[in-house]
Design a protein around this nucleic acid. Structure first.
Lengths: 274, 274
DNA sequence: TTGCTCCTCACGTCACGTGAGGTGGC
DNA sequence: TTGCTCCTCACGTCACGTGAGGTGGC
């Protein structure tokens, strides 16, 4: 049997704080090898050092405690590595977002606020192939790129032709709570049968106030602010979900500055005499 | 005066959630332009969009709310930029740590646990030039590199010669609570008068169990575990602050794999008949 | 015997999110 | 009138950290 040490010694051996060690017992991450029945003193075996070192590294990478537990309990090395690699993937995506946020901050600080050129446009009924799902604001990028991949594949497979730029519908809820049922779509020239959850729907005709956004998606709020602000100044109220049209997408360019996106607020046509 | 909009509209304009907007009022980040005395309804001016966009970007970079407030209240552009750049600096340091943590995790998963070669060494009295301060575990890297810079400068300025490798003393508290009074030192050949907070002190003689750590500091816990575990197996107890000797430092190599560090546990000489 | 280590609550931190329960505005 | 928006508490989240108040071990 392995030698036992006190919690303080184990803390010095592993560089985990005493408070953290107690917490890891509470949440079932690292159970002391023995606990004195009378005094409650914890004793750790030196064969637990390896687990402690792994925990420390995973937590240093901000892996959630539940995932760390899954790693420790993984039945074999491949399944353990799967969890670890999935987390490293998440971290890389977050790193990309952070870099985009830095760029976005610099551009906000250096570039003046540009008033949006707002166009009022009548949009007819549109038949589209669509995917609809509850999405979190933080996941929108990944979800959209996945969804458009599936839509494009379905369009090809059904022998259809895209009949215009792809787009998305974002309900008010999505902005106000940071989560909501988002619809992304590709216009198509005719109906066709597609496998669920994909569906062919008809977007109703609408009058849209449209502003063109040039550049990375992290800066979209600037165009939202310019467009919505200009409408508010003119006492025009929006109604219904906001629409985005993706004119130039990440699939077509690697340079985020070349992205082109239309931001469209549905408005009451009676009031929208620009 | 600017047009006013409801909290829901402002949320859609700025991509800040309604809950976040209310929270930002509570903490004094973004006060609505008007609040209805009867209903409590908040009204935001469209001229507040710019502030909201700045807040959103700074929070996306995890700047603490207190710092965001300081940015918003900065009297001029230079002082505003100072706060922002200081935060970007912090982020870059954290990024470096994360990358080190990834390397450290990979090496733990790929390289087997190596038992430490432990040497028992008698260390005589040592006269050193030292700096002592309360330091957080998370800040130790930056603090040490700064402290050694100051120590080296003081040694040169006083016309002294380094009389051995530099080192550090880490009290138990430092590991158990993640914070403690850390001492770093450079051995010198003779006494000299130095400006506070620097001081010349004599490290008392001690018997040390020493293990050599090769590689990045992020992996130091592996050598601590190996050394302390092997002492625990032999029922040898540590006593007093742990010592590190920096044989090859980041000042001497850019490759963390070439770092050489001695980890030294003071032990009771009577029991330490290896 | 003294001081150090260890114990268990209970509560705090940070930046919001989650509901409950209720009211105002088009 | 209906449903939607908005309101205010109070509490939850996450991974610990911070004390308070007390006890065991060398």
């Amino acid at each position: 049997v392995a030698a036992l040490v006190s919690i303080g010694s184990f803390s010095r051996l592993t560089h985990l704080s005493v408070k953290a060690l107690r917490h890891y017992q509470d949440v079932g991450l690292l159970e002391p090898a023995a606990v004195d029945g009378v005094t409650g003193y914890r004793r750790y075996g030196i064969d637990q050092i390896a687990d402690a070192q792994l925990i420390r590294r995973l937590r240093a990478l901000e892996m959630p405690v539940d995932d760390v537990r899954a790693v420790l309990q993984a039945p074999d090395e491949p399944s353990r590595n799967r969890i670890v690699l999935a987390h490293l993937d998440r971290m890389e995506r977050r790193l990309d977002e952070t870099q985009a946020a830095v760029v976005s901050l610099r551009s906000l600080l250096s570039e003046p606020v540009s008033p949006a050129a707002v166009e009022i446009r009548s949009c007819p009924d549109t038949r589209v192939l669509a995917l609809r799902e509850q999405v979190n604001h933080t996941d929108i990028q990944a979800w959209c790129s996945d969804a458009f991949g599936r839509l494009d594949a379905a369009v090809r497979q059904a022998g259809l032709e895209p009949a215009g730029p792809s787009g998305g519908l974002y309900p008010q809820e999505y902005f106000e709570h940071g989560r909501g049922v988002v619809t992304v779509f590709v216009p198509v020239d005719r109906a066709a049968s597609v496998a669920a959850p994909m569906q062919v729907i008809d977007l109703p005709a609408a009058t849209l106030a449209v502003a063109l956004h040039l550049g990375p998606y992290a800066d979209l709020d600037r165009t939202y602010g310019a467009l919505g602000g200009s409408l508010a100044e003119r006492r025009i109220q929006g109604a219904g979900p906001i629409r985005e049209h993706y004119l130039v997408t990440p699939a077509e360019t690697d340079d985020p500055r070349r992205l082109r996106t239309e931001v469209c607020w549905p408005v009451d046509p009676a009031r929208a005499t620009s």
